[in-house]
Computed example of a mutant assay.
Amino acid sequence: MLSQAIGAVLPAALAVALSPFPLIAIVLILSGAQGRRNGLLFATGWIFGLTVSATLVSLLFGGADDPDSTSSAIADWGRVLAGGALIGLGARK
């Protein structure tokens, strides 16, 4: 079950990880003063941030497919809040 979830999310995760923004940032960092050290620190921070995000999501939403679990309730309320935020942004626009 977990392998199916990882397989479903992996293409989107790769798209986010390889998006142009970190690539542009790393080029600018490498061309600056002490580029090698700063580039290594940036890459380490990027990987650490993705690892922490993935861990939190898997802990919070680990049992989201079970209707009686608290993870399912968290996922449902997350969708409600995201929908409300999008409606608010649409009304503001």
Rank of each mutant, 00 (worst) to 15 (best):
Ala75Thr: 13
Thr44Gly: 02
Ile26Thr: 07
Ala17Val: 03
Phe42Gly: 03
Leu2Asp: 15
Lys93Ala: 13
Gly32Leu: 09
Val80Thr: 13
Gly35Pro: 02
Ile47His: 00
Phe42Leu: 06
Gly83Tyr: 12
Leu28Trp: 13
Ile87Met: 09
Ala82Cys: 10
Pro67Ala: 10
Thr70Asn: 08
Ser58Ala: 13
Leu59Asn: 01
Gly49Arg: 00
Thr70His: 04
Thr55Asn: 00
Ala85Ser: 08
Met1Arg: 10
Pro20Ser: 11
Val57Thr: 15
Val52Gly: 00
Ala91Gln: 11
Leu60Cys: 06
Ile6Cys: 05
Thr70Ile: 04
Ile26Gly: 04
Asp68Phe: 02
Asp76Cys: 11
Leu2Ala: 14
Ile6Trp: 09
Ile24Cys: 09
Gly32Asn: 05
Leu60Val: 10
Ser71Cys: 02
Gly63Glu: 13
Ala82Asn: 03
Gln34Ser: 08
Gln34Lys: 04
Pro22Leu: 11
Ile6Ala: 06
Val27Ser: 10
Arg36Glu: 07
Ala75Tyr: 10
Ala54Gly: 03
Asp76Ser: 15
Phe61Ala: 15
Phe48Asp: 03
Ala33Phe: 07
Ala91Asp: 00
Ala15Val: 06
Ser31His: 03
Ile6Glu: 12
Leu41Cys: 04
Val80Ala: 14
Ala12Lys: 01
Gly88Met: 07
Gly84His: 12
Leu56His: 00
Ser3Trp: 15
Ala8Ile: 06
Trp46Met: 12
Gly7Ser: 12
Gly35Ile: 03
Gly78Phe: 12
Leu81Tyr: 15
Leu50Glu: 07
Ser72Asn: 08
Gln34His: 11
Pro11Ile: 00
Ile26Phe: 11
Ile26Ser: 04
Asp66Ser: 08
Ala13Asn: 11
Gly35Gln: 05
Ala91Pro: 00
Arg92Val: 14
Pro11Gln: 05
Leu30Gly: 09
Ile26Lys: 02
Pro11Asp: 08
Gly62Pro: 08
Ile29Asn: 02
Leu23Val: 04
Leu56Met: 10
Leu14Glu: 10
Leu41Gly: 01
Ala15Arg: 05
Gly88Ala: 15
Ala15Phe: 11
Gly39Tyr: 03
Leu14Ala: 09
Ala8Thr: 13
Pro22Thr: 01
Arg79Asp: 08
Ala25Glu: 12
Val80Gly: 09
Ala13Thr: 05
Met1Leu: 14
Gly90Glu: 00
Arg79Thr: 03
Ala8Phe: 08
Met1His: 13
Gly45Gln: 05
Ala91His: 06
Leu60Arg: 04
Gly35Thr: 01
Pro22Asn: 11
Thr44Tyr: 06
Ala64Gly: 01
Gly84Cys: 13
Leu56Gln: 01
Leu2Val: 10
Met1Lys: 11
Ser58Tyr: 07
Gln4Arg: 14
Leu59Asp: 03
Gly39Val: 10
Gly90Lys: 05
Pro22Arg: 03
Ala64Phe: 09
Trp46Gly: 01
Ala75Gly: 13
Pro22Ser: 07
Leu10Gly: 02
